[in-house]
Amino acid sequence: MIKWILIAAFVASALYVHFRGRVRHRFSRQITDHSTFMAPINVLMYAFSRVPTTPFVDPDLFPELAPLRARWREVRDEALRLRELEKIKASEGYNDVGFNSFFRRGWKRFYLKWYDEAHPSASTLCPVTTALLREIPTVKAAMFAELPPGGHLHPHRDPFAGSLRLHIGLQTPNDDGCWIDVDGTRYSWRDGESVMFDETYIHTARNDTQEQRVILFCDVERPLRYRWTQAVNRWVGRHFVAAAASPNETGDRTGALNRAFGRFYALRLRAKELRKRNKALYYVLKWALLLALVVLIIRL
């Protein structure tokens, strides 16, 4: 009986995540999307959130972010210095599971921190920004992110609702041709301006201008109503999200998930080759494996 209650709760949570918002994935894609597997935890985060669960959230609700937002010019100086040194770049291997698909579309990044103390490379190259971040423990992850002319990110939703995403424009085209769309509403970045949104809504981005877009990208802990829900959020972040840490340079930490990702991706490449050769067989095997997983769960 308990097993069926848990299965029903999972299915209900997954359906809620799918139908939440105006923009949705195809149902067949949502079934295998990573946000589906996190749905029960995410529904808990939404239910006990102390800030609105709307696609965009007012960053003024997070007063601890004020020093970071106010000193954006100093942060920009460090980001532009990194660009000159060509340190804002794509991953050099299969060690960034969270953003691996973005690199093919021109997106680049330099990690400042990831659910831990700043990377050694960030502390050395960006002392002002990392010092500011160190004073704001609710910022769980931060990076400089670059989207070049013609770059774009496909529609996606992030897997975990324990944080909200803050973007601060550092060097942007200041043009409506460079934008992010969250659940059907667009925002165009501007130098020195901040925008915050819920990354578990489907979002996409494009830069159709001839200028680079460089932003400070932060994941800020979602405020929750009770200590126990906050404890759940931090436990998931510490034990699962932190495992996706990706290095900038040798000496930076690589999380367990990214250490495994390189081996997994070799299988993924073989699957892609099979899809090119025989698409029908690829989908038969994909859905057969998914069905087998469902049967296994039911029989446990």
Rank of each mutant, 00 (worst) to 15 (best):
F99W: 15
L61P: 11
V75P: 00
K87E: 08
R83Y: 04
F56Y: 15
R73Q: 13
W72H: 06
S49A: 08
L68P: 09
V51K: 03
E84C: 05
R29M: 12
E64A: 11
T32N: 02
L82C: 02
A39Y: 01
R29W: 12
S35K: 03
A66C: 09
I31R: 01
R50K: 13
R83D: 06
R71T: 03
L44D: 05
M38L: 13
S35C: 05
R71F: 00
P59C: 05
L68Q: 06
V97H: 03
A47N: 02
R76V: 05
V57C: 05
T32H: 01
P63W: 01
V43I: 12
R81H: 10
S35W: 01
F48I: 07
M38S: 09
V97Q: 10
P59V: 10
L82Y: 03
E64R: 07
R69T: 12
E86Q: 15
D33G: 12
I41Q: 01
N95S: 11
D96K: 08
L65Q: 04
K89C: 10
A66G: 08
M45R: 00
P52I: 11
A90S: 14
P67Y: 00
P59T: 07
S35G: 04
K87R: 15
A79W: 02
P55H: 05
A47I: 13
W72S: 06
G98V: 14
L65I: 06
F27I: 15
Q30I: 04
M38F: 12
A79H: 03
V75L: 00
I31A: 09
L82D: 00
G98F: 10
S28K: 02
Y94G: 01
P67L: 06
